[in-house]
Amino acid sequence: MYRILSPKISQKIMKSIFWVSGLITIFILLIIIGYILLKGLPVINLEFIFAEPIDSGRAGGIFPMIISTAYVTLIALLVATPLGVGAAVYLAEYAGEGRLVAAIRFGAETLSSIPSIIFGLFGLAFFVIYLDMGWSVLSGGLTLALMALPTILAASEVSIESVNKSYSEGSLALGATKWQTVYQVVVPAAMPGITTGVILGMGRAIAEAAAILYTVGAALAIPISFMDPARPLPLHLYILATEGISLDNAYGTAAVLVIIILVITVVTNTLVDRYTKKMMGR
């Protein structure tokens, strides 16, 4: 009863099931990206990119939103990169295996699984109200920094740990101090991995909307000072779509976001490929 099918036939059946599930995954991506680009690309032109929105986004372009996204992402990376890379260096090179290190790891892990809307609530209570930064690029950027931090930390730690130990041993043997070794030998060798981590963190910051919903405001004007409110691209798309403002401009905004994510995927993959080839070459 158990063996209705011969092992060879069940092997064939299962292999085709595995193939189908792999193909379904590719198919899903193609449908989503294909549809968004098909509908969105015709909307995108120079005017759409470089014009300000007219009538809350019913017409006009998305220039202030592109600037907003760049602005909050920049602030997020300026804060999260030193913290994340510093923490990674400490964990990989200085820390032992104590309780404190376990706590730090658990902290980073917890941070990466906290829902984005909780970051949004925290940003509202802490940055916007408690520190009185108001709805601003700064509040939004700092909230996004907290979200990008664990991504940068994890990727940097892995790449620092995978640097060949003989490098740092060589440097130490030549009389360099620990920090000189880390700064001039280990970190440069780990640079491609760290860069990948920063780009991934950047992707997370660019894509996020829930965390900035109540921290960045929703202003349609171009933010000049970092205390100005702003409206990054995902937030703009959310408002356009849920308030039924303009379907065409929503498609265009979605397509711009998808293109950014595609570029990020291609860049990180090229970096990782080069890095792996370099490591294999030795």
Binding site: T25, L29, I206, A207, P234, L237, A254, I264
Partner: peptide
């Protein structure tokens, strides 16, 4: 797929 914004 994991990079596409949730809003999209």
């Amino acid at each position: 797929l994991s990079g596409i914004p949730s809003v999209v």
